[in-house]
Design a protein around this nucleic acid. Structure first.
Lengths: 175, 175
DNA sequence: ATGTAGGTAGACAGAGTGGTCTACTTAAGA
DNA sequence: TCTTAAGTAGACCACTCTGTCTACCTACAT
């Protein structure tokens, strides 16, 4: 992975996440990153291709963080507690690696692209399934119902925190 | 409210909801509705103004439907049951007035516009607060915690149903 | 009969888009 | 020293977008 390629992904991810992928043009990514347009198109076939790379990057960072936060959780109670403690930190911008909280990058991006680019929405769905699978691994022997409930509640918390600018919503599930 | 104005709102709402507001141009709304561009700009100051009118229209329709579905619910149990029964119908496209399920129009639109137009995101937040207030009226004397939980779970269900194309998710909360 | 309100059709301006291409620069290895 | 790879700057193309404007067309009330 070249220096310039990573530089582009980092810059683009930051801009896409904070403004929405549709609101950010190639030229803005160019000028912000200080990388030439030709170089961008040497590494990425198209803007959509760059968006996909950003989704993958975000997925890796997010999963690494969440894995870490859930470490040691091995039943419904501890998983529930550690999950919402983690979300609370995220919502309150105490996780540098996730950048300033702007909702879920995957939900936001999927909402923007809908049917327009199936690869993008498919990757967003993949991400959510991976999160769900991770939770499942911690709910050792828990019921499918418990998993569904925990996952759905966390999705709702992310959306609510973003839309209602209620960064303390995760706290209300910690008691 | 003129005939043409309503016609524009209905057409635009349909296109915005199914494709995403950013993916739909004025010209598409014009040609689909059969109304002249000049007429559109006689009723709406801008595209954003039209989007706001669509959000208001959707809000009215959605709230009328939800009010109806929750009628008679007067405690946590009945509200919970009636809410997820309603969501299940919505997800499975059994509610003609809400059109084919495409996630929450307000979440999707807020995700697209983020900080770009504060009026739009503010209206999306307003909608969610109205839904929350409606739920609260049915949880007579219920705790704040119960309300938060119910609302958050329903938000999560809407997002999951859309992203994971899992239209039966609401059913898993009905047992 | 004529003026007016409300409409249509569509050309047009101005800005912005993604993406391509040429010409130039730099650094390193043979 | 010469070649090659990687990068820069930015002009440029073809296209799309919102929004404006002119010219024309009814229907109807005075």
């Amino acid at each position: 992975m070249t220096d310039k390629k990573q530089q582009l992904i980092q810059t683009a991810l930051h801009l896409f996440y904070t403004k929405g992928a549709g609101q950010v043009g190639i030229n803005e990514i160019i000028s912000t990153s200080g990388v030439a347009k030709k170089t961008l198109y040497a590494y990425f076939a198209s803007k959509d291709d760059l968006i996909l790379a950003c989704l993958r990057e975000r997925h890796d960072v997010f999963m690494a963080w969440l894995c870490d936060e859930l470490e040691g959780a091995n039943d419904i109670k501890s998983t529930y507690f550690q999950l919402f403690s983690a979300l609370d930190k995220w919502f309150n911008c105490q996780v540098p690696s996730l950048a300033q909280f702007r909702g879920c990058f995957f939900i936001n991006t999927a909402a923007e692209f809908q049917e327009y680019n199936p690869d993008i929405t498919a990757y967003c769905a993949y991400h959510k399934n991976q999160v769900k699978a991770l939770l499942n691994r911690h709910l050792q022997g828990g019921s499918q119902h418990e998993l569904e409930r925990l996952f759905t509640l966390s999705e709702g918390a992310i959306v609510s925190a973003f839309m209602l600018k209620n960064s303390d919503i995760a706290k209300s599930f910690l008691r």
